[in-house]
């Protein structure tokens, strides 16, 4: 726990240093061309950019400890507000994708391991390795082409015409079940793509670890003593593989974050990724720092959760 806090402090300090070391600062973007030196000085003072890096660093920490991440240069709202608006979108996208990742990825990997070397294994290996190698934004564009424009061009049934961007149908107020259905329709492509990419990674991992366990002596013993296949797979194989899959959850989080940045960009979802990319193009330092801090905290928390969960599922780790 203490280690995690030190790590978080290091991450924030590194982010701060990186941003302040870069040539050019936010003022150059906010100053209108033809401004006088006095105006430039006033804007820089307003943003606190005229003070030394150490003073800025101290101020940033002082405010952070009061729960204040500063004000966005570009959006003119508190960073905490901007983050609070964006985090639920990204968390929803991430959580739904993660569930899909495990629901699809683990069974695919298990099927591959059980059918190792046969046609099903080969086909699934080709599929997972290809998806694993494809950039998420390209898959997104290709599927948008098929399910939105293609669906209307080739006269596919109406329910196959999926929206290409946004969270809601534009221009209409929806309530209750209809609003939920609308959100679900808008989520199919983003969640499907992100979950599919994650599933490909998990399946690659599950295949090799399940195959290793299936070759183990205790599985042969279980079969020899007449255990049903269900008992062999759930009681012996899955119980052995589960700890590794839980560790994989923490390891797959950065990939999920990266994927969500592109998916939010392509589908114009107002989440953390889009906020971050916009902040970067606008040199909006407070938002960049805040977003990087949230991402880092997320990864560190996931690792902690993995450490806590591991002894719960793996008796060998209880000591």
């Amino acid at each position: 726990m203490g280690g995690a806090l030190v790590l978080l402090w290091l991450v924030l300090t590194i982010t701060f240093a990186l941003i302040r070391l870069a040539p050019g600062d936010a003022a150059t973007f906010l100053i209108p061309p033809g401004a006088t030196a006095a105006e430039v000085g006033r804007i820089r003072a307003q943003l606190g950019l005229d003070q030394s890096v150490f003073v800025q660093y101290a101020h940033w920490w002082g405010r952070l400890l009061h729960g204040d991440l500063g004000e966005s240069f570009a959006l003119h709202v508190p960073v905490t507000r901007a983050l609070a608006d964006a985090i639920p979108v990204s968390l929803g996208l991430g959580a739904a994708s993660l569930i899909l990742t495990y629901l699809v990825g683990v069974p695919v990997g298990v099927v591959q391991a059980v059918r190792r070397g046969r046609a099903a294994d080969h086909i699934l290996t080709i599929a997972t390795t290809t998806v694993y190698a494809a950039p998420s934004f390209w898959i997104a564009l290709a599927l948008v082409a098929v399910f939105t424009y293609g669906a209307s061009a080739w006269g596919l049934p109406l329910w196959l015409r999926l929206p290409a961007f946004g969270l809601h149908a534009p221009g209409v107020e929806l309530h209750g079940w209809i609003a939920a259905a609308d959100l679900a329709r808008h989520s199919i492509l983003p969640v499907g793509i992100l979950g599919g990419i994650g599933a490909a990674g998990i399946a690659r991992f599950a295949r090799s670890s399940v195959a290793d366990v299936l070759a183990a002596d205790f599985v042969r013993t279980a079969r020899a003593k007449g255990a049903t296949p269900a008992r062999v797979y759930f009681r012996h194989v899955l119980a052995t593989v589960l700890p590794a899959l839980i560790v994989l959850f923490a390891l797959s989080l950065p990939g999920l974050v990266a994927g969500s940045i592109f998916i939010e960009s392509v589908f114009a979802w107002p989440g953390m990724g889009k906020l971050m990319v916009n902040a970067i193009t606008a040199r909006d330092y407070p938002v960049i720092m805040g977003a990087a801090a949230v991402y880092a905290a997320l990864v560190i928390l996931a690792n902690l959760a993995g450490d806590v969960a591991l002894p719960l599922v793996d008796p060998r780790r209880r000591s």
Binding site: L8, P254, V257, A258, I261, A291, Y295, A296, N303
Partner: peptide, 8 residues
């Protein structure tokens, strides 16, 4: 550095 997702 590993704690920050590489893309970020």
């Amino acid at each position: 550095l590993l704690a920050i997702p590489r893309l970020v």
